[in-house]
């Protein structure tokens, strides 16, 4: 199979229309031939297992219900296909018009699904209770959605650290209408920010999620959970990244929030507790230094009205330029 060639194409940064179309058609043909067996060489087809306690549970539930569905599909579609083959008018099949109902059959195909559903519901309910238990957190961070960026405020021991997290410049430029920049050449296109959220591994981190304007949703697939950010509400979420899985994890806003909905990514840098402590110390030192100087324009508190003014903004190439640049204009 030509899966290897496809993988090579995936990396190659060519971008003529013909090449794009050929690649798409090749992929289409290969997907029809390969089915799910090509999952490794293919772009992702399944939910990530993730790196948190909860994401593993969720992945397990997902796979359980997926296989139950596949089994039911094989059985039901099998019967349907058998009927389509065996009872064809063109093959001279004679209809059995007396077969109009069977109480026994109907009781059976009502009770069996109920039993399957109960079997599925029990582990799901157990996990659900675990997900909603946000007690005994080691670190609490407030996450606030804005049109169109995230703001993080560390509470407790790390209090004082707070910053906006905005789509990185190169993604921003490349995503402008007809920018002429191939997104494939931009590292982590639409999934990179200026200031990532930093959390420690092995610690239960509680996120308090809210919004300053419209409804957003905070979602990092590798962490397994998402929550809506609703103005006037604080939703809770917890994340405990398993030790050994330190690294950078990426996600996006998951609730339609206006023109920039596709352009407010979430990036989380997971550090070991020791590295995290160092990061917190460095941030606090920088804060102390900054408090001596006047507040720079970039952190001026009047950013929300500016963001709102951009709703009707014309599609100029700089329409999604960072706010800092606008304010200094």
């Amino acid at each position: 199979m030509n899966l290897n060639r496809l993988t090579v194409n995936h990396i190659r940064p060519t971008r003529t229309r013909g090449a794009v179309l050929r690649r798409a058609l090749g992929l289409l043909a290969a997907s029809l031939l390969a089915g799910s067996t090509g999952a490794q060489a293919f772009p992702a087809m399944n939910m990530p297992v993730g790196v948190t306690v909860l994401s593993h549970d969720i992945y397990r539930i997902h796979m359980e219900v997926l296989w139950v569905c596949v089994a039911i599909a094989v059985a039901v579609f099998g019967v349907m296909i058998t009927a389509l083959i065996r009872f064809r008018h063109s093959k001279g099949a004679v209809p059995d018009t007396t077969m109009t109902h069977s109480t026994a059959a109907e009781v059976i195909w009502t009770i069996i699904p109920v039993l399957i559903l109960v079997a599925l519901a029990i582990p799901a309910a157990r996990t659900m209770i675990k997900i909603d238990d946000t007690t005994h957190a080691g670190l609490t961070i407030r996450v606030t959605g804005y049109q169109w960026k995230w703001h993080y405020t560390y509470l407790g021991d790390a209090s004082g650290i707070r910053f906006f997290s905005t789509l990185s410049q190169n993604s921003n430029f490349a995503s402008q209408l007809d920018s002429g920049i191939d997104p494939r050449t931009v590292p982590h296109y639409l999934l990179s920010v200026d200031h990532p959220l930093v959390i420690p591994s092995g610690v239960k981190v509680r996120l308090l999620i809210t919004s300053a304007d419209v409804i957003h949703a905070w979602w990092v697939p590798a962490f397994g959970v998402k929550r809506s950010a609703i103005p006037g509400f604080i939703n809770e979420l917890w994340v405990k990244v398993l030790p050994g899985h330190e690294g950078v994890y990426r996600g996006q806003c998951a609730a339609l929030c206006g023109r920039g909905h596709g352009f407010m990514p979430i990036v989380v840098d997971v550090k070991t507790p020791a590295d995290f402590a160092k990061w917190v110390a460095a941030q606090k030192a920088a804060l102390k230094q900054a408090s001596a100087a006047p507040v720079p324009a970039a952190t001026a508190p009047n950013e929300a009205p500016v963001a709102r003014a951009r709703i009707a903004a014309p599609a100029s190439p700089l329409a999604r330029r960072p706010l800092t640049a606008r304010i200094s204009d």
């Binding site: 293919f42 772009p43 087809m45 399944n46 639409l190 979602w219």
Partner: peptide, 20 residues
């Protein structure tokens, strides 16, 4: 399942193939 949110006008490059 791979993590693409709905209602977005543009997407990260790893979602290209299936979108095509």
């Amino acid at each position: 399942l791979a993590g693409m949110p709905r209602r977005i006008p543009d997407y990260a490059v790893q979602f290209t193939d299936w979108n095509m």
